[in-house]
Design a protein around this nucleic acid. Structure first.
Length: 776
DNA sequence: GGTTAGGATTCG
């Protein structure tokens, strides 16, 4: 209820306000968007006549004084307060000078008149759009008791002016499609600034300048073509053209301009009004803009960049380095290969911030971007791995200096990428959130680039892990290759494929359970499978310690909750949430449960009974996954882990989207939860010897085919673990002299790892399968 | 009730 009256008869004001949060004094106010858990109190010192905006919406200005009991000399003691929209009508008739009011869900912004009127440096802005409530405690209780109203929460009906209808001097609401924008940058004054040009089907365009002390409150525009909704922009004339500037109560929503993607508003404030009419408006503008694509820039990737062109690049940061005082180097990639010869910016490897193996692995696809002047500040703040849009990047062709010196005209000039200083043409670097449409598309390009790179002959990551860690015949898929001796193999350059015949004289790890690792197909890193002791500790630390916070997250109707106490060493509260589904038959083995506060033993027990078990933890407003060192899902007894580097975990509530259908596959669960699943792989090192030479070869990719056993299954099956032991004992028999070891035939491929003098040749067993396993 | 900017390439 936007306006409520409090009566003395109903008890002390403080009691009546319980539930409105905490009282905040004027000098503790902060520049934040509406804080729902705080209220502010004051006496009405002045009340001005309401004023109408060009939108038809009313504004009421009142001045509040902190306290009537303690006279204060502080200029913080009175504060300008602006009330917008539907709330004005009620406040205008009910509020009287001298009344005490309490305000919630207000927004504090800088007061531009503070230096003149000597009042508080901030002002308060209230609108029902932001959920503001005004409580009034009238002195003349008898009179106003008659006008207590039960006002319904009626949202303001906003009117939007077509861009060709706007007039000088009015404050209006508009919708438009972004034709040009400069991303937020620091102005020479006190605020961040952003300029936006919008267009609409009326054919007119409007230049807008938006300021805010907090860059987060500026429009979240990611690209031209985005749709924006501005509330309360003031129209004024500049250089004989109309321009818009943010007016008091300004708010903005931004939408992706693509057809068919969800119209999810990116808001400048925590609460906003969004109706079905808005949705129609967004869709209409999207249709119009997409039918007139000629007005917007086309997407350019590194593969299709032209010489001397300025373009916007959507990419991921791989590494960065300071070059000098005015330049920072960014190494970026977008999954495509730039066809031009590239100029590399010389920097010390030690000066590069970023994952060394990533820098090496992605090297052939990365480009060097030099950023200058004002952009170095942004560039320095970026973390490798961040997704970026670099706007107005200059693809510059430069003749190589050595070619110039040797007079070798005609030598291919090299391409350099510069982000020049200044903000002209929207120049700048913008980190993109991982959930935006452009990043989704970029990730697909990066993934496909990685998977087509799978066959490349280098894999530093794998080698790093192996170096730091502590008969039967074999059928090969390449019978057409003539077998070679290991002596010959050792004398040939890499990369090359060979078929060999040798004895397995040693293998590692000897403890076979250590041969199963977790592998991320995205970043290609390997990690150990967590052991039980660690898991038990992490589970109780992560889940158990916080369990029992009591309150159930909001909107929790999609599961049923059961809670009980468990008293072993320390008292724990176990929470089980049974996810409701549309299924007629709900059997435990087809059910999904969310568990919290459980020990490892209990987790094992639940996973034996229930089909899907998801360990969770409670946060104040949400149910979340635990740290990714804990499995995010146990499905049919299989423990699924997520990659800490490549996952972007979402609140567990997103699982609701699965309750409508039957797709409770681990991959579907991982996808909605934002988890990059790790797969179980075998990783072993075979020492092979055929008398002519000896070498170490890795067995991993293809190891499941080699053994005919799945690495994930071997984790949960003692039978398979015993079988693997028997296989290895057959291939490399203990208590037997080496000359009696069986001979294996298999395929080997060689590849280089490292650079320069550190380069070495490695070998990998591939495309090979053990035969005669039935007998083992 | 309004300083900042007010789209307009390029030193590197």
């Amino acid at each position: 209820m936007p306006l409520q009256q409090l009566r003395d008869a109903d008890g002390p004001m403080e009691t009546q306000l319980s539930g409105c949060g905490e009282w905040i004094e004027y000098d503790k106010l902060q520049l934040e968007s509406a804080a729902s858990n705080k209220y502010i109190k004051g006496t009405i010192l002045m009340k001005y006549p309401p004023h109408e905006l060009g939108t038809g919406e009313k504004v009421l200005k009142i001045v509040l004084e902190e306290s009537t009991t303690q006279p204060s000399t502080s200029n913080q003691a009175s504060i300008n307060t602006f009330i917008f929209g539907k709330l004005v009508e009620d406040c205008e008739s009910i509020l009287k000078q001298g009344d005490t009011v309490v305000l919630t869900n207000f927004q504090a912004s800088k007061s531009p008149s503070a230096s003149k009127d000597g009042r508080h440096a901030f002002q308060l802005e209230l609108s029902d759009e932001a959920g503001a409530t005004v409580f009034v405690c009238s002195k003349t209780g008898a009179d106003s008791a008659a006008i207590i109203r039960k006002t319904k929460v009626v949202m303001q009906d906003y009117t939007y002016v077509p861009l060709n209808m706007i007039k000088d001097g009015v404050t209006v609401n508009v919708y438009g499609v972004v034709k040009f924008f400069k991303q937020p940058y620091r102005s020479k004054g006190t605020d961040y600034c952003m300029t936006v040009t919008i267009v609409d089907p009326s054919g007119a365009k409007l230049h807008c300048v938006i300021f805010n002390a907090n860059a987060d409150h500026l429009p979240k525009i990611y690209r031209t073509g985005d749709v924006v909704r501005f509330h309360r922009i003031k129209i004024q004339e500049f250089n004989s053209e109309l321009q818009a500037i943010n007016a008091p109560g300004f708010s903005v929503l931004t939408f992706d301009g693509a057809l068919g993607v969800p119209a999810t508003p990116r808001a400048s404030s925590k609460s906003y009004n969004f109706t079905a009419t808005d949705l129609q408006m967004v869709e209409e503008l999207r249709r119009w803009a997409n039918a007139n694509t000629s007005t917007f820039k086309t997407t350019v990737t590194l593969a299709d960049v032209k010489a001397a062109e300025y373009f916007d690049l959507t990419c991921q940061l791989v590494a960065k380095a300071d070059v000098d005082r005015s330049a920072v180097l960014l190494k970026v990639w977008d999954g495509s290969k730039c066809p031009h010869p590239l100029k590399d910016v010389p920097v010390e490897r030690s000066g590069l911030e970023g994952d060394a193996s990533e820098i090496t692995r992605l090297g052939p696809l990365t480009v060097d971007v030099l950023t200058y002047d004002n952009h170095t500040r942004t560039a320095k703040s970026l973390k490798p791995g961040t997704y970026l849009r670099i706007c107005n990047l200059h693809a510059k062709l430069v003749a190589g200096s050595s070619e110039m010196r040797s007079g070798c005209l005609g030598a291919a000039p090299k391409m350099e990428f510069h982000l020049h200083g200044g903000t002209a043409y929207g120049r700048g670097i913008m980190p993109l959130p991982t959930d935006c449409e452009d990043v989704r598309q970029l990730k697909r390009s990066l993934e496909s680039a990685l998977s087509s790179d799978q066959d490349s002959m280098e894999d530093l990551t794998l080698l790093d892990v192996l170096n730091s860690s502590s008969g039967p015949s074999v059928l090969t898929a390449h019978q057409h290759i003539n077998p070679k001796s290991l002596g010959e193999v050792l004398h040939q350059t890499a990369p090359r494929k060979h078929r060999i015949r040798a004895q397995l004289v040693n293998y590692e790890p000897r403890a076979l359970h250590q041969s199963v690792k977790l592998y991320c197909p995205h970043c290609r890193s390997l990690q150990e499978v967590p052991d039980d002791d660690d898991l038990d500790t992490w589970l109780l630390d992560d889940g158990g310690a916080r369990a029992g916070s009591g309150s159930e997250p909001h909107g929790a109707g999609w599961y049923e909750t059961t809670v009980w106490e468990q008293g072993d060493q320390r008292l724990r509260q176990i929470t089980i949430r049974f996810v409701k589904t549309n299924r007629l038959r709900r059997t435990p083995e087809r059910s999904t449960i969310l568990v919290e506060g459980v020990s490892l033993n209990e987790l094992y027990q639940f996973s034996e009974t229930f089909g899907n078990v998801i360990p969770t933890a409670t946060r104040p407003d949400d149910l979340v996954l635990n740290a990714l060192s804990i499995p995010f899902l146990i499905q049919d007894g299989k423990w699924h882990y997520g990659c800490r580097r490549c996952s972007d975990p979402r609140p567990v509530s997103v699982l609701q989207s699965l309750t409508q259908d039957d797709t409770w596959e681990s991959s579907a669960i991982a996808k909605v939860l934002g988890i990059q699943q790790l797969s179980y792989v075998f990783v072993m090192k075979f020492t092979l010897d055929d008398g002519s030479g000896s070498l170490d070869a890795f067995l991993w990719d293809g190891a499941e085919t080699f053994f005919g056993i799945s690495a994930a299954d071997v984790m949960i099956s003692e039978v398979l673990q015993e079988k693997l032991t028997r296989i290895m004992n057959r291939l490399c028999p203990p208590k037997t002299s080496p000359e009696d070891y069986p001979w294996l035939e298999c395929c080997l491929k060689s590849y280089y790892v490292g650079e320069g003098l550190d380069q070495k040749t490695c070998y990998q067993v591939f495309d090979s399968t053990l035969a005669g396993l039935e007998a083992i």
